[in-house]
């Protein structure tokens, strides 16, 4: 292992500015959401936008700073490894975030809903809504006035299947691009990376189409009971992660065009590729457990 002197950056203004931006984002979001019902969320929206704007500027500045340090050769192989550990554990934390929602899905499917329908050891809860029958996907909720169920759910074998193919292929194309980067085949790198971005955007477009269909034609909404709730929280947070991943892919593509990466020094590239594989794997879980089964 290398033990060159470790680069400890000098004082930095970015973190505290980022804390202020995060505070504005959070406080703004809270005020906005609390004002939704009474239409008094304007200050909240303003704070939220200010926070988002500030945070974007900070992220650009902070990353530019780190990129310049990297170009100046300040990061030893040991520092590189610190970044790798950092990114790996960050992705692990993201996985655990999805685990919470998958856990909720499995719990309601295998325990809560059957119990409400009178099955199993806690089937006594059926007395709350007598006559309620357990089914999954849950189209008829116990209280249809409060939570009107959906008329149908998304057919997994159309758009979702297509999206699965798209996202899995994008994992392959990013790997091809990464290999091209290591083999110094620049045009192949730019091409395959560009294809990955396009696949990501198509995926997002199809997800948006699917959401519109769910809301307008199927009555599958956030309000439509626990199926809609788990469906939208899982696919929604996944969609947000794909959006973030696509943004990262675009930024890293621009960096490729600027020639920031060399075959033996391109951690930023790899980190984005790892992240992209992560959203891909989560999608496979979604496809199987939200759409198909």
């Amino acid at each position: 292992m290398s033990h060159e002197t470790y680069y400890v950056p000098a004082q930095s203004r970015w973190p505290i500015l980022a804390s202020i931006a995060l505070f504005l984002l959070a406080y703004g979001a809270g005020t906005l959401i609390n004002g939704l019902k009474t239409q008094t969320g304007d200050t909240g929206l303003l704070l939220l936008l200010a926070g988002a704007f500030m945070m974007s500027l900070i992220l650009i500045g902070w990353f530019r700073h780190v990129i310049n340090e990297s170009i100046d050769g300040k990061f030893s192989p040991q520092a590189d490894l610190s970044f790798r550990w950092g990114m790996s554990w960050f992705i692990f934390s993201e996985i655990m975030f999805f685990v919470a929602f998958f856990g909720a899905l499995f719990y309601v499917r295998t325990l809560a809903v059957p119990w409400l329908g009178g099955e199993g050891e806690k089937g006594v809860s059926n007395m709350l809504w007598q006559g309620f029958e357990a089914q999954w996907p849950l189209l008829t909720t116990p209280d249809m006035e409060q939570f009107p169920g959906a008329s149908a759910v998304i057919d997994p074998w159309h758009l979702p299947l297509l999206n699965t193919a798209i996202l899995i292929s994008s994992s392959f194309t990013i790997t091809l691009a990464h290999h091209a980067l290591k083999a110094q085949r620049r045009s192949a790198l730019i091409l395959w990376h560009g294809v990955t971005i396009i696949l990501g955007i198509i995926f997002l477009f199809f997800q948006a189409t699917e959401y519109i269909e769910a809301y307008q034609e199927l009555g599958l909404t956030l309000h439509s009971g626990i199926y809609g709730a788990t469906f939208f929280i899982l696919t929604g947070f996944h969609g947000l992660h794909v959006t973030l991943g696509t943004l990262m892919l675009i930024i890293i593509w621009l960096r490729v065009l600027k020639g920031h990466f060399t075959p033996d020094s391109h951690f930023g590239y790899e980190a984005v590729a790892w992240y992209w594989h992560f959203v891909d794997v989560v999608w496979v879980g979604l496809f199987l457990f939200v759409y198909v089964f």
Partner: peptide, 17 residues
């Protein structure tokens, strides 16, 4: 705020969740 029923049995959720 957004009308889901994770912790509301009326929509098929469960406070115990």
């Amino acid at each position: 705020h957004f009308g889901t029923s994770f912790f509301n049995a009326a929509g098929g959720g469960d406070p115990v969740l």
